[in-house]
Structure formats: structure tokens, C-alpha cells
Nucleic acid binder design. Structure first.
Lengths: 340, 340
DNA sequence: GTTAGCACTCTCCCGGATTGAGTGCTAAAG
DNA sequence: CTTTAGCACTCAATCCGGGAGAGTGCTAAC
């Protein structure tokens, strides 16, 4: 279907369009890439490529631009992810890992670096609490009717929750309950601290805090902690596609729907390795002008969250691909380091 | 200097321009406001107003628009803040106060409501920790070398800090230290828990945790918690001034400088009541096309933070003024309620 | 002091011409 | 059979000139 020369030409179109954001014509290709053939020949080939659906023409007297299918082919077959030097990797790792010991900051900083590397918008979904292992649970009195529940979880990240109670507990009682709970629950994954487990431990439990147990299990079951961080909107708006304000507004609208994005990333994160979603491959109509490149990060091999970049379909896939891979990798390493 | 009629005309110009974003001419005023005088007379008066500097002409054959000085006069003298019905106030209060018991959410929701009320960008600076009173301090072991310090402070808001230690503490020791520290520090404002106070209590303190004390005081002294929340960028971009993408980018740039904004709000918060900063009155050059309306919120009379709205100089001052006042008021009430 | 009238200025918008990039087709060359 | 040169054609973008419209300032009359 695609002979050598067609592939070269497709590659040229993709490259040039990614670079210039302008439709690319046969003359340009003949001039810029030394394929040893004339514009006329290129025109014939392009005509074929258009018929198969790899490139399209915005209007009859314009050059061609890659279709989503064209990008897909490029990503799957042609693209060579940029090689990243070990030196560079180490430098980034230092930049990230050296100064942060709280997960939240780590994630925040990761989005910054990633968006700087790519010039698009970087996203990070905070660790799925579900997968995190409890290290410590502490109840702290706030006043007569409120108690603060502090959960310390394995990748060094902390979660506060205020709950309402009818009974008043003394500080000493809370300390006892905390100690006991920690003893019983430590090392167990958050997702397993459901209603069931708490029921199971009820009988091993002193009776001071029995009423509290239900409340806590209730709260834990309902708390939705999927958090999304992102960075790079401003740079993104330097891309020529955003000369039109409406486009910019549309993008902001997408970014405002954080849960949606978080779900999308999490969904993609179910596959391993770097995932690429191009334009219309995306279920959300608002996002069909954009591509999404994602990967997962984790601790010691276990996946706990997703990371990604969103940019125009005309994005520098090679660079983005390897940047996402790199940052997923570095973040995982930093987190694993943190846990030890 | 300004007779009755000039004032009426100035008011007309301001009103019309706020509403339409188009320069307003003499005919328009004559038609729309029944001043009982002809366009020619209005022209003469406008000419005078321009000479004094209250209005300006973008180009010779256009209508007039208010200058910053004109807006200033409008805000100081002419503007009547919108009256807000008790019913409406109560409704908003319910919306805000009913569902949130954590300060952070409360602030977040406040920005949402305020930006919705005004159609501009709403800002809230999180409570100055300095002014907050400590309720409880709890040390929680994370692993050999890290300890989590949880501070619960008076307006129901919680602050986590992870610190590094060389000595290993047992859980029991940390409980003892926490209890003791809480006993000694409870009810004291954060700003006073400086290095000095901690030195003072050293001798009353058991010797298990002496080393920790220094670390904690050190950490507290350096933590900068000024947090800024905002909401409404998307709506703001519907304003006609943002048809130009460069303007939009400039605004995003302003919003990215969170510390700057937070400082600005805090600075303005030193005066009591609602403050208005118009265009060039603003020290930051990037903000000279915008106006800022701010007020302060607090607990039981004590100011602990600032709230505000940023919009184009052509903003609906009357509405924004009273909305900011309202939300500052409601937020204060909600917080005060929370503390009780 | 007010107003009608008028000349004048300037922006905005429209339509037409021009330019330029690019195509597809055809016929000739390789 | 493939490649290429040449050419006619298409379309978007740009430029240009000419109103139209909004608004002003000035003058002279009321």
C-alpha cells in the first residue's frame, strides 16, 4: 500500500506541518527534502496519499496537512522518540528529587518541568489513594463536635479529613484509638480499608471508639481524592492555533473539567507504556482538536497514577513521547526513593 | 469645577461605556439620557470634561471614554453601591456555609460565587497563618528520619509539615511531646510561636523532645503559607477587551504571579473597608489596564485575609463593590460560625 | 447660554483587483 | 511505464479605494 517513497513524503508533510503549522505543498517538499524527484511527482504521490486518507487538503489550492490517520501512522511507524542522554536524565532527576519530600510538591514540580520540556500543557493525576498503603492513622480533637483524621500513606503523602461526631472524646481516648487503629490497619492498602475490613476488626477493638469506626469507614469510602495538577497553559497559547480567542476559551473549558481529564488519564493508564490519543480518537468532542500523550508512574513497579501532555494534534510527538516517558520514569524513581 | 450638568454627563459617559465598551458620543447621550439639552451643548461640556482630564478621546472622530481619573471620580463620588436584599444575602450565606467545614473549601467556594456574581475574576488570599491561633499540635512518625507535624488552627484549618530528624522517636514519645507542646502552645497566635517563645518554654519542657523543638520552631519560622485562590478566568474572557489574544495572555501572566497578587491584596487589606484600585493607580505595569476591588475578611472582628475582584478598568464598579463587600461579610460570618 | 448647521476627520466595512501558492491535467521526455 | 515540464485553474489572502457612519469643533443665529 505504502511504498518507500510515499512514506518519505508523508513523513515530510508531517514534519513540516508540525514545524510550521502551515499546509505544505509539493514545491516546498521538493525544495526542503532532497528526495531527488520533482514537485510534479510529489503531487502525484500526495494525491494518492490523500486518497488513502493519510493527508487532507484544507481547500483545493492549499498544501496538504496530515489527517489524524496520518499522525497515527507517523506515531506508530515513523516516529523515532528522541534519545535522552543519561546526563540530562540525571540533571532533571536532581532538579526534581532533591528539594521535595512531599508528594504534592513533587507532582506539582513534575508538571512544571514536563510542560517546560514540551511547550504544551502537562498533566499529572495524583496517586490513586486506593493503591496507597496506610502507615499511620491519627485522630486529633478539634472541638466538641469535630475530629480531624490524619492519614499518612506510603508514598509520603498525607490526607486530612474532618469528621463530625456526637460524642465528645478526650484527647487521651483519641490517642488510644489512634494507636490501636494504626496497629490494626498499618500496611493495608487504602482500597481494602473499606466497610468490610473495619467490620472485621470491630471485635478486636476496645469499646471506647466503636462508634467512631463506623464514621471513619463511612468517610473513607466516600472520599474522592482524584486530584489533577497541570501547568503550561500560558506557553501553550503561544502556539499559532490560538490566535483565535475562541480556541483559547475552548481549551480553558477543557482544563476546567478536571474530573473528566483525570478520568481520561486514569483510563488510558490501564494500558502499560506510553499511550497516544490523537484528535478524533478522543471520545470527548471538545478534545478532538488535541492529542494526548500519557504514561503511568508508580512505586517499585506498582502503578499508582498517570502523567501526560495535552497539545494540538500537530504536536511534536517524538519529543513529547520521550519527555512523557522520561518524566514518568523520573517521577517513579523519585517516589520510590521517597518511600524507602 | 464640576457643575451639576457636567457631573450628569460624566456619569452618562461612564455608565454607557461600562455597559457597551464603545466610545460614547454626544448624540448617544442626548438620545439615551433625557438631560433636556442638545448634542451640541453636550459636546461643549464634554470638551470641558476632557480638558480637566475626566474623559479622553481614542481618536478625533470617536466618542469619549472615561480616563482613570474619571473612573476615580465616579467611584468616589457618583457610584451608588447596589443594595443587596437581606433575602439574597441569606441565600448566598446558606449556599456557602451549609456544606463546608474546611476552610480551604470555604475559600474556594467563595471565589466561585464571587466570580459568578460579578463576571470577573475573584481572588481570595487564604488566612494569614500569622493571625491564627493554635489549637492543637501533633507529631506523627512517618519513618526513621521523618516526622509529620500537624497543626490545627483556630478557623478550622489544618497545616501539615514534614520535618527531617536524626534521632529516632518512638510513637509513645511523640505522643508525649505532642501533648506537652499542645498544652504549652494552645491558644497562642502562630506569629508568636516564633523562635523566642519556643526558647522560653524550653525549660518547662521534658527533655525527650528538646532537639525537636528547635527543628519545629525553625520550620515554622520559614514556612510561607500565603495561598491564593481564584476563579472566573473563563468568564472574564467573554469581555470584549479580550478579543485580542495578547490581552488574554497578558492577563494569564498576571494570574500566574500568585505571590505578587497575594501581596497586593494583603497590602490593600491594611486599610479597612472596600478598596478600589483603578488602572494606573496600580504599581504593577502589567495591571494598569485592570482595576482591583478588595476588602478583608476575618473572624470575630479580627482581620485574617483579603478578598477581591480583578476586572477591566471598565468594570461595573457599583455591582463589584457591593459584591465584594457582601462576600467579605458572608465569608467572615461563615468563618466565625465555624470557630465557635 | 443654547442650538442648528455644516465642514471636517477618522474608522470601519465592502467589493474588486491583484498576488501568490498550490493543484490537476496533459503531453512530452526518459 | 514513470517522471517531468508546462499550463490553466482555483482559492485564500492582501491590498486598495470608495462610501457610510459616527462623531467632533466651529460658527452663526436664536
Amino acid at each position: 500500500m505504502l511504498d518507500e517513497r510515499k512514506i518519505l513524503i508523508l513523513q515530510a508533510v508531517v514534519h513540516d506541518y508540525i514545524q510550521s503549522a502551515e499546509p505544505v505543498g509539493s514545491r516546498t517538499i521538493a525544495r526542503r527534502y532532497n528526495l531527488g524527484i520533482s514537485p510534479a511527482t510529489i503531487r502525484n504521490e500526495m494525491s494518492d496519499l490523500e486518497e488513502i486518507g493519510y493527508i487532507v487538503q484544507p481547500h483545493v489550492s492549499a498544501g496538504r496537512i496530515p489527517s489524524d490517520k496520518g499522525y497515527r501512522f507517523y506515531v506508530d511507524v515513523l516516529m523515532k522518540p528522541e534519545r535522552i542522554s543519561e546526563e540530562f536524565r540525571r540533571q532533571i532527576y536532581r532538579q526534581l528529587a532533591s528539594k521535595y519530600r512531599e508528594v504534592e510538591q513533587l507532582l506539582q514540580e513534575t508538571t512544571k518541568i514536563l510542560s517546560l520540556l514540551t511547550n504544551y500543557i502537562a498533566l499529572v493525576v495524583a496517586p490513586h489513594v486506593d493503591a496507597c498503603v496506610l502507615k499511620h492513622i491519627q485522630l486529633i480533637p478539634i472541638d466538641e463536635s469535630y475530629i480531624l483524621v490524619v492519614l499518612v500513606m506510603s508514598p509520603g503523602f498525607v490526607h486530612n479529613k474532618i469528621i463530625e461526631v456526637n460524642t465528645r472524646y478526650t484527647m487521651e481516648e483519641l490517642v488510644v484509638i489512634s494507636t490501636e487503629l494504626t496497629k490494626l490497619l498499618r500496611g493495608i492498602a487504602y482500597r481494602d480499608i473499606g466497610v468490610t475490613l473495619i467490620k472485621d476488626i470491630k471485635d478486636q477493638f476496645g469499646d471506647i471508639g466503636l462508634a467512631l469506626l463506623d464514621l471513619i469507614s463511612e468517610e473513607l469510602a466516600h472520599s474522592n481524592l482524584e486530584q489533577l495538577y497541570f501547568h503550561g497553559t500560558l506557553q501553550m497559547f503561544n502556539q499559532p492555533e490560538f490566535k483565535d480567542v475562541e480556541k483559547a476559551k475552548a481549551l480553558l473549558e477543557i482544563l476546567e473539567a478536571k474530573e473528566l481529564l483525570a478520568d481520561l488519564l486514569t483510563e488510558l493508564g490501564k494500558n502499560s507504556g506510553v499511550q497516544v490519543r490523537i484528535g478524533q480518537e478522543n471520545p470527548h468532542s471538545a478534545m478532538q482538536e488535541y492529542s494526548l500523550v500519557t504514561s503511568t508512574y508508580g512505586i517499585g513497579g506498582e502503578v499508582i497514577g498517570s502523567i501526560g501532555v495535552i497539545g494540538p494534534t500537530r504536536m511534536e510527538y517524538a519529543k513529547v513521547f520521550s519527555s512523557v516517558e522520561l518524566m514518568a520514569n523520573i517521577l517513579s524513581q523519585a517516589l520510590t526513593e521517597l518511600v524507602k
